[in-house]
Design a protein around this nucleic acid. Structure first.
Length: 151
DNA sequence: GCCAACGTTGGC
DNA sequence: GCCAACGTTGGC
């Protein structure tokens, strides 16, 4: 069991959208490091922090889970999609994704500002200067610290 | 809206 | 293979 953090701009897709839909496909990721995590390391049942980026405030809004194995991102094949990528062929896909299912919203939204103040959180990838990976691993220690910091 | 940090592209 | 230019991310 691994833990992850997925970033989404809530104006594009928020935790409330996921709560409504129950499940979504995490398409449109076009960063190789992020792809590798999804393609190679995510397992069904892994838990995920749902993070609102580019938001006021930014922070962790809820918990989701990985609900499929990785498979090719269909948006890369669709010429009309903003995420279309001619490099990705159906017989040799470049981009992969996983399905994500809703678990719950945090009782209280945890803003980035509060996350940064949690003792022991300093090494978390999310808060490293210049770090902007939209799919990133979270250590069990950091996962627990964040859940304890709630309320 | 600004802009620093980062990733990608493409000329050489 | 280098690196400048460009586009994007994301906090503020």
């Amino acid at each position: 069991m691994n833990y992850w953090l997925l970033k989404s701009e809530p104006t594009a897709y928020s935790i409330d959208d996921l709560a409504r839909d129950g499940k979504t496909i995490w398409d449109g990721v076009r960063n190789y490091q992020a792809r590798n995590f999804m393609r190679d390391q995510m397992k069904v049942g892994d838990l995920v922090f749902f993070y609102h980026s580019n938001a006021e405030p930014a922070g962790i809004a809820g918990i989701a889970k990985v609900s499929s194995k990785s498979y090719p991102d269909p948006s890369a094949f669709d010429q009309k999609d903003v995420h279309f990528d001619p490099k990705s062929k159906k017989e040799n896909p470049v981009w992969y994704l996983i399905d994500v299912s809703f678990v719950k919203k945090l009782k209280e939204f945890l803003p980035l500002e509060k996350i940064k103040k949690i003792p022991g959180i300093e090494s978390m990838l999310l808060i490293q200067k210049g770090s902007r990976l939209s799919v990133q691993p979270v250590s069990e220690k950091h996962w627990d610290l964040i859940l304890e910091a709630r309320s």
